[in-house]
């Protein structure tokens, strides 16, 4: 079998040994007595293995406690307190287990996927059967970026953070110091919202643009998160737009407006669809994407914005515009 499977067996013996030790076990005792650790040829290899296993167990919610002994001050000892790692009583119905199974499959390709899977496994220890929730329906979300776990931990402990951030427009990197408040998912991306100490203002950071590790730069409890969460502003629809849309196309645009007229052109009829929009540039992106199927009748600034896009792209293939 592979080395990974051996690691699970070794950690299992470590958990059992450290939760049964009367007082504590030192590293040398662990290396000599616990199954799977004595095979290392060098002390360095043992240390690396032990540190990695300790890290894994911490992530699993089974922390190894470090103890020093009055008699042997220089040698650190380790133990696991089983009482601290047990799940409180929980009563899950089969339907709720079905929902949790659905939830455990939401995250794709990220640390969240593994965490959700292991969380579900732990709940299965105390749960009975499960029924299928919402048959045939599935939610699949790209999980957050690697920086996210550190950020969520820092928010929970109210610790300021420092990280290297790549600016969206210039592509340049700067080091930012931020009091983290919350994270949110929007349009397939994850964002950190907080107080930027250098800019002295609230800022939003796309977490995929954080380069490298997130460092903590202060004491736990030193961040005050504003009580009031500003509600997401309601969209204000104000610019009236008229589009000439070919029959059957641009269903998403049609759904936001209504057909008010139709016009005849040399290549067939088009529906005139009227709708109100809030952001002309945003709508220009959408309309330009439809190419010849959707044309802008009004307003002129939207038409120019779309034409500018089409002209730029027409020039890419050497075609004459």
């Amino acid at each position: 079998m592979s080395e990974r499977v051996d690691a699970a067996e070794r950690m299992l013996d470590l958990v059992i040994a450290l939760s049964h030790t009367r007082h504590r076990m030192t590293k040398s005792e662990i290396r000599a007595k616990v199954h799977g650790y004595g095979t290392n040829s060098s002390t360095e290899a043992f240390e690396r293995m032990f540190e990695r296993d300790k890290e894994h167990l911490r992530d699993l919610g089974i922390p190894i406690v470090t103890l020093t002994d009055a008699v042997h001050e220089d040698e650190i000892g380790y133990r696991i307190d089983t009482a601290a790692y047990s799940l409180p009583p929980i009563d899950l119905t089969p339907a709720q287990m079905g929902v949790l199974s659905l939830a455990a499959e939401v995250w794709q390709d990220s640390a969240f996927a593994g965490s959700a899977r292991r969380g579900l496994t732990k709940l299965k220890a105390v749960a009975g059967s499960s029924t299928t929730a919402a048959p045939g329906v599935a939610l699949r979300v790209r999980g957050p970026d690697p920086a996210m776990s550190d950020l969520i931990e820092a928010i929970a402990e109210r610790v300021p953070v420092r990280f290297t951030y790549r600016a969206a427009y210039s592509g340049e990197t700067t080091v930012r110091e931020v009091e983290p408040w919350r994270v949110h998912a929007r349009d397939r991306g994850w964002y950190l919202v907080g107080y930027d100490r250098d800019r002295q203002a609230q800022r939003s950071f796309r977490t995929s643009r954080i380069v490298g590790k997130v460092q903590r730069v202060g004491e736990p409890g030193s961040v005050t998160i504003p009580e009031h969460r500003p509600p997401t502003p309601e969209r204000v629809f104000h610019t009236p737009v008229r589009l000439a849309i070919r029959p059957e196309s641009a269903a998403a645009l049609r759904a936001r407006g209504s057909v008010v007229d139709s016009i005849e052109g040399p290549t067939g009829a088009r529906d005139v669809v009227a709708l109100d929009v809030s952001d002309v540039e945003h709508v220009a992106d959408e309309v330009a994407g439809y190419g010849h199927s959707v044309l802008v009748l009004d307003p002129p600034e939207l038409r120019e914005a779309v034409l500018a896009r089409l002209r730029a792209v027409a020039a890419l293939g050497g075609a004459r515009s």
Partner: peptide, 21 residues
């Protein structure tokens, strides 16, 4: 034979998934 508690990472991953659902 004690059931394991959820680590913070596991609780967050499941709860955020449930909120999305």
């Amino acid at each position: 034979d004690r059931p394991l508690r959820l680590s913070p990472g596991e609780a967050v991953a499941l709860l955020v998934a449930l909120q999305s659902l």
